[in-house]
Simulated assay, not measured.
Amino acid sequence: MNKLLSLTAAGVLLSSSALYGQIEINENLSVTGFLDMSLYHADDDSGDSTSFDLDQMEIDFLYSFNEITAEVDLDYQRGETNEIDLEQAFITYDLGEGTSITAGKFLSYMGWETAEPTGLYQYSYAYGTTIPGYHNGVTIDFSDDWGSIGLAVLDSVYDDDGSINSDADDYDMGIETKVVFTPADGWTFFLGYGIDSANAGLEDRELINFWTSYEFGATTLAFEYNIYSDTFSDIDQWLLMYSVATGDKGTFTARISDSVTEYTMLDYSASGLWEDEDFKYTVAYIHAVNDNLAIVTEASLTDGGSYRGDLTEFAVEALFTF
């Protein structure tokens, strides 16, 4: 996911505590985390529903021993099979000259939108699950003034079971790569590729992820495009986002996004569903109550076509970071 979020308006409001406000236990250990609660309302062709929940809670332990650092994240998410989860646990060895090696369970390179709500410019995500999450493996990364490159050898791009090669698995080892360019002040270009090698007559899972962002003054512009394919479907996705600071404590964001799925399995022929599309409009406002608490409000409209119809969503989120 996007780990290059600068401290622009949304970054200052939601990420400054996690990046700089850590609770220092001793010279080798710091703790940070967040609580995420929301009031959510949805209305579609089948009816409407409203909920209020603690969506997510996370505590991160950050270790530092000269050139070796480590991180362990414990995470609760409502509705997950294992609601309390070891989200991340990895060590990083700094080789110097901008080069580092990381091993353990860690987050994917891919995606403009961050995995955690503390890095988002709004409440919801643009589209579904083509962007990978957390997985086990080893990465080598190099960064310089022009940008960075990275290579990850993984148990799987999309799974985190730790199995590299097993006859019982549909997919074996995965690989991710990234190239990031920062050619001028405010500009970032990211190109990533991920592949899971398939077993048992399945096709490889492949993802090409491109995004670019431009930050000038209090404004951020971003564009993303994804191409994903597997045995069952081919998916094209894109988003366009505009975000601007409004005063000292606010950020307004507008986003449009689209996800088109072309199904390749005959199972869908009975219903005549060969292609599916979700076109989404989103507006959001973030208000920083203080350095640790932000209130996020959002309204979204998704056009799901003739198959699912329209979906209207409203959310108010309280995000407390420490």
Rank of each mutant, 00 (worst) to 15 (best):
residue 139 T to H: 00
residue 81 T to C: 04
residue 39 L to N: 08
residue 182 T to P: 10
residue 33 G to W: 07
residue 183 P to D: 01
residue 282 T to L: 04
residue 295 I to H: 07
residue 291 D to C: 03
residue 149 I to P: 02
residue 141 D to F: 06
residue 10 A to L: 05
residue 276 D to P: 04
residue 146 W to G: 00
residue 75 D to C: 11
residue 214 Y to D: 12
residue 187 W to S: 12
residue 151 L to I: 01
residue 120 L to M: 04
residue 317 E to Q: 14
residue 252 F to N: 10
residue 217 G to D: 07
residue 197 S to P: 06
residue 303 D to E: 09
residue 200 A to V: 00
residue 238 W to L: 08
residue 18 A to Y: 13
residue 110 M to C: 09
residue 207 L to E: 02
residue 149 I to T: 08
residue 143 S to P: 13
residue 199 N to W: 02
residue 147 G to Y: 00
residue 214 Y to W: 14
residue 233 S to N: 07
residue 185 D to C: 02
residue 278 D to T: 13
residue 101 I to P: 00
residue 104 G to H: 09
residue 69 T to Y: 05
residue 148 S to Y: 01
residue 167 D to Q: 03
residue 31 V to D: 02
residue 6 S to C: 02
residue 208 I to R: 08
residue 168 A to Q: 13
residue 263 Y to I: 10
residue 51 S to Q: 13
residue 145 D to E: 11
residue 85 D to S: 15
residue 59 I to D: 01
residue 45 D to R: 15
residue 272 G to D: 09
residue 201 G to W: 00
residue 1 M to C: 07
residue 322 F to V: 06
residue 62 L to H: 09
residue 159 D to T: 09
residue 205 R to I: 03
residue 22 Q to L: 08
residue 149 I to M: 08
residue 234 D to A: 06
residue 77 Q to E: 12
residue 147 G to D: 00
residue 181 F to P: 02
residue 35 L to H: 15
residue 227 I to C: 03
residue 307 Y to I: 14
residue 31 V to W: 07
residue 222 A to I: 03
residue 303 D to T: 06
residue 71 E to C: 01
residue 257 S to H: 09
residue 240 L to E: 05
residue 229 S to A: 12
residue 278 D to M: 14
residue 296 V to I: 13
residue 60 D to I: 09
residue 32 T to V: 14
